[in-house]
Design a binder for these strands. Structure first.
Length: 429
RNA sequence: GGAGAGGUGGCUGAGUGGUCGAAAGCGAACGACUCGAAAUCGUUUGAAGGGCAACCUUCCGUGGGUUCGAAUCCCACCCUCUCCGCCA
């Protein structure tokens, strides 16, 4: 959520920044509301001060022995009543403006950081670097896509999963299930050694949590919902982790708080009919290991570099070639001010695919969730960052395509062997 | 699901309808003592909004109500805890 003071004083600046995202909006109406609200607040508080004075007078008179029914006291009581009515009217008007204002502010995305390059959509994103040598098919060699490999090796069931749930769900089987588990443990351990505290949060989250991290109110159609209970299946661990400290004031010297969590993530993938229908790339339920920082505003830019490096470290340890993309202003997610995407090379598909997104959200989520820190006497909003480290299913896809051998087996990176219990997946006998 | 108890500041925990934003303790900050530290003593220490200085308003789970005045009384809701039942 954006700062109301900035809205009152300088809506042009907000509009200019939102324009970089491709959001054109006239904020003069909102500014009016914000100013009118402040105006009412001032009037109301003056009247309340008057009323408090009357209350105090009455109290003193009665304690001093005055008759509660004396004309003097009665006159004061009547004055108090009149004030109370006036205050009630102002209060109602003020409250309705406040609600309007908040409702509308909650639908506005975050402002892009100064460093974020301008652009309209993903075509304007900037490639920052490439790591590793992408595997290309040798002469006469055909590289399979991961779902072909997985089917051949019996790593998952897709058709039977439709029976269990519906399309876009898979059941990992045998070595496939074991590899998923190995990857989760491997990632958690790797990040744990770098100072991230491991957490396993609820994956059903309430509306307040989704609002706090920015998924509501605008993106309700992206999440699965248990309507009876005001609970939703979390689309990312970013949601429960943000709310882990919702409403708190944290001591400055406790920052940064760094968390890593593995959770299943649930997304409706509305509007992606027909895309990535096979395999592990786009599912309603997938595993993800998420990195999350609560940090001091002065350190968030550096933290963004670090959290991205921590995600890259997983790809490097798994020997998976990737490239790092900086998103342009038009391609940023709702809550982000600046984002790096990591795209892993899929040799079978001969394409880079997103496997991690590392964003700094400034105070946007902190304001929605009221998460502050205290430094000396001052309490102020902190900054939040999140990054996938990594999306597990897509990691498996990359490993299968990268490690595929001409004999039909798949070779896994050495780092994974202790977790998986071997470095090769062989075809079934 | 049934019965009971309770929700107060960073934490623990008092609170009779009338200077209660709230005792006390802990924690924290500063100062004194000390070569330094501990201990001790003293002072300070909640948040949001508005003016941005004095100051004003609001906030004791949430929302209503009674009253000149509510942390305190009334109503509804939410949540937590304990016991029982059920259950991995």
């Amino acid at each position: 959520m954006l700062d109301q003071r900035l809205l009152r004083d300088n809506p042009e600046r907000i509009a200019a920044q939102l324009a970089r995202r491709g959001v054109t909006i006239d904020l003069s109406g909102l500014q009016q509301i914000a100013r009118e609200e402040r105006n009412l607040e001032q009037q109301r508080s003056t009247l309340q001060a008057e009323g408090n004075g009357i209350g105090k007078q009455v109290g003193q008179l009665i304690q001093g022995g005055a008759n509660p029914d004396s004309p003097e006291v009665r006159a004061l009581r009547e004055a108090g009543n009149r004030l109370k009515q006036q205050v009630a009217v102002l209060e109602d008007a003020e409250k309705s403006l406040e609600i309007q204002l908040r409702e509308q502010l909650l639908t506005l995305p975050n402002l892009p950081a100064a460093e974020t390059p301008d652009g309209r959509d993903e075509r304007d994103n900037i490639e920052v670097l490439r790591w590793g040598t992408p595997r290309q098919s040798a002469a006469g060699e055909t590289l399979e896509e991961h779902w072909q490999i997985a089917e051949r090796l019996g790593l998952f069931e897709s058709e039977r999963s439709v029976r269990i749930a519906q399309s876009r769900f898979v059941t990992l089987m045998g070595a496939g299930a074991r590899l998923e588990r190995a990857l989760i443990s491997f990632m958690l351990d790797l990040h744990g050694r770098k100072g991230y505290q491991e957490v396993m949060p609820p994956i059903l989250v309430n509306s307040a949590s989704l609002t706090g991290s920015g998924q509501l109110p605008k993106f309700a159609e992206e999440s699965f919902r248990c309507a009876e209970d005001d609970l939703w299946l979390t689309p990312t661990a970013e949601v429960p982790i943000t709310s882990l400290h919702r409403g708190e004031v944290i001591a400055a010297d406790a920052l940064p708080l760094k968390y890593v969590a593995h959770t299943p993530c649930f997304r409706r993938e509305a509007g992606s009919y027909g895309r990535d229908t096979r395999g592990l790339i786009r599912l309603h339920q997938f595993n993800k290991v998420e990195l999350y920082w609560f940090c001091h505003p002065d350190h968030s830019a550096a933290a963004h570099q670090q959290i991205t490096a921590d995600a890259e470290a997983v790809l490097q340890a798994l020997e998976l070639p990737y490239r790092k993309i900086e998103l342009c202003s038009g391609d940023l997610g709702f809550s982000a001010t600046r984002t790096y995407d990591l795209e892993v090379w899929l040799p079978g598909a001969a394409a880079y695919r997103e496997i991690s997104s590392c964003s700094v959200c400034g105070d946007f989520q902190a304001r929605r969730s009221s998460i502050r820190f205290k430094e000396g006497k001052h309490t102020q909003l902190l900054h939040t960052l999140n990054g996938s480290g990594l999306a597990v299913g897509r990691t498996m896809a990359a490993l299968l395509e990268t490690g595929q051998q001409s004999d039909g087996s798949v070779r896994l990176p050495a780092a994974l062997a202790p977790y998986f219990g071997g470095a090769v997946i062989n075809p079934p006998q």
